[in-house]
Computed example of a mutant assay.
Amino acid sequence: MGTQLRLRSTKILLINLGAIGSEVVKNLVLGGINSLEIMDSSKLKEEDFSSQFFLPDKPENIGKLKVPLVIDQIKDLNNRVNLTINTATFESVFDYEDRANDYLSNFDLIIATEMPKAFMIQLNSYTRKLNIPLYVAGMHGMFGYVLLDLIKHTSVVTKDMGNQPRRPNTKINSNKLISDVSYDEKEKKENITIIDTYKPISEMFSSKELPNQLNRRQLKRLSAAFPLIFTLFDVEKPVYIEDSLDVDMLREKASLVCEKHDIPTAVITDEYLNFFSRQAFTEFAPVAALIGGCLAQDVIQYLSKKESPINNCLIVDTIRSEMPIYVL
Rank of each mutant, 00 (worst) to 15 (best):
A225I: 03
K220G: 09
E185F: 13
T193G: 09
K171D: 10
F284A: 06
Q218A: 14
N173S: 10
K237S: 12
Y272F: 11
S277V: 08
R278V: 07
Y198T: 05
N173R: 04
Y183D: 03
I291V: 11
L295T: 09
P264A: 01
A285R: 10
D243T: 11
E252Q: 11
I195F: 00
S182P: 06
R216T: 15
V181A: 04
K186D: 13
Y198F: 15
F276E: 02
P238V: 05
S223W: 01
E283V: 04
L228H: 01
K199Y: 11
E283L: 04
K208D: 06
V257E: 00
P200S: 08
G292Y: 00
V235A: 00
Y240P: 05
A285Y: 12
D184E: 08
F276T: 02
L232Y: 00
N191H: 15
K188V: 01
E252K: 15
I241K: 13
V235Q: 05
F230Y: 13
I241H: 10
I192A: 05
A254L: 01
L273H: 06
I194Q: 06
I178D: 03
E283Q: 13
K199V: 14
K208N: 13
I263R: 05
L232A: 02
I263V: 15
C258S: 00
A280N: 07
L250T: 03
D196A: 08
I194A: 02
Y240C: 14
Q213C: 08
D180M: 08
R216Y: 02
F205A: 05
G292C: 07
V235G: 03
N169K: 15
F276Q: 02
K199T: 15
E242G: 09
E187D: 14
T231S: 10
L210W: 04
S179E: 14
V239Y: 14
F276R: 08
K176T: 15
P168I: 01
I178G: 06
F230D: 05
A285T: 11
L228D: 00
P238T: 07
F233I: 08
P227D: 08
V267R: 04
S182F: 08
V257I: 15
D246L: 04
P238W: 00
L222V: 07
D184G: 04
N215G: 10
P168F: 07
T282S: 12
V287W: 01
H261N: 08
F276K: 01
A224T: 04
D184L: 06
C294R: 10
K253C: 03
E185R: 12
L177A: 06
E209F: 05
L290Y: 10
K260D: 09
K253N: 09
F276G: 02
L232P: 09
L273W: 03
K260E: 06
T197Q: 12
P211K: 01
E190K: 09
E259G: 13
A225Q: 01
L228C: 08
R216N: 12
Q213I: 12
N274F: 09
S206Y: 10
V287H: 07
N212K: 14
K253V: 05
K189A: 04
T193Q: 09
S202L: 06
P200L: 05
L256K: 14
I229D: 04
E259T: 11
E252R: 11
I195K: 11
T265N: 10
F284G: 01
L214P: 02
P264I: 09
P168H: 04
T269D: 13
V267Q: 05
L250G: 00
S255V: 09
V239S: 15
P238S: 07
V239M: 11
F276L: 08
